[in-house]
């Protein structure tokens, strides 16, 4: 399986395991960093790496998961992705998978040079949304749609292998802008404003940066929508089914 598909399984497993969004995000960043770092000549098992990254992220984020649960959920999710219904029954296979993850953990740690700190954009997003919604008036529906969509976009953005190349506050601003555009919401008086809301919230952001991030996000949707395996994803549900 390619990294692209493994990240899909990773996100679905996170959902199944009811992990915090910050943990999803950290796991995805480790995963992308790993594949950027490693030389392409060695074929790593993307699923093993993804499961290990998830395990590491749960340790770092103190979002504890039992390794047995992790393996069972990842296993069945992976098979579902391939269109099979299969759960992990063999003890032999379980022990083998567990051993692989424990061994792989060291490899991932080394590859990431033990640097597992990644600040997550979620609190920036929350803060920006609170500031912005004060401007948008009292329409509850609009506000909840905006916040729901931007959170979903943020989450999906971490499927992009380039996600960790951007500053987290820039990502937060860009997903809000994208959510505003998708819902055709205008920030009142923004056209006349000397300082636009983007700069008001985040000083060093430029239109180019926002544009690049949105393009990257659109690329994610192209890839995963084409695969027609994207139906379960948050944003797809929200923007297309509601």
């Amino acid at each position: 399986m390619s990294p692209k598909e493994a990240i899909s399984v990773l996100f679905k497993s996170c959902n199944e395991l009811k992990l915090q969004r910050e943990t999803w995000c950290a796991a995805a960043v480790y995963f992308h960093r790993f594949f950027e770092q490693c030389s392409s000549s060695i074929a790593y098992d993307a699923n093993l790496i993804a499961a290990t990254c998830l395990y590491l992220a749960s340790k770092v984020e103190e979002d504890k998961i039992n390794i047995r649960n992790l393996i069972a959920v990842y296993y069945s999710t992976m098979h579902k992705e391939r269109g099979e219904e299969k759960s992990l029954d063999s003890l032999q296979e379980y022990l083998c998978l567990k051993e692989s993850i424990v061994r792989c953990e060291l490899l991932v740690l080394r590859m990431l040079q033990f640097n597992l700190n990644y600040e997550k954009p979620h609190k920036h997003l929350r803060f920006y949304l609170t500031s912005l919604t004060a401007w948008l008036g009292k329409d509850r529906q609009i506000i909840s749609r905006l916040s729901h969509n931007s959170k979903a976009f943020l989450n999906d953005f971490y499927r992009s292998p380039r996600c960790f190349h951007f500053k987290i506050n820039h990502i937060a601003i860009a997903v809000i802008q994208f959510a505003l555009e998708c819902n055709q919401i205008k920030v009142p008086y923004d056209e006349k404003a000397r300082v636009h809301w983007q700069q008001a919230l985040c000083e060093d952001i430029t239109e180019e940066i926002i544009e690049t991030i949105i393009q990257e996000l659109c690329r994610v949707y192209e890839i995963y929508v084409d695969l027609s395996k994207f139906v379960e994803s948050d944003a797809y549900e929200n923007t297309h089914c509601s």
Binding site: Y55, L56, K59, V60, E62, K64, I67, I101, V102, E105, L106, L109, F114, N115, L116, N117
Partner: peptide, 12 residues
């Protein structure tokens, strides 16, 4: 469970 979580956090 592999490398202890505390060690991972301290080192990072």
């Amino acid at each position: 469970d592999g490398v202890p979580a505390t060690l991972i956090r301290e080192i990072s």
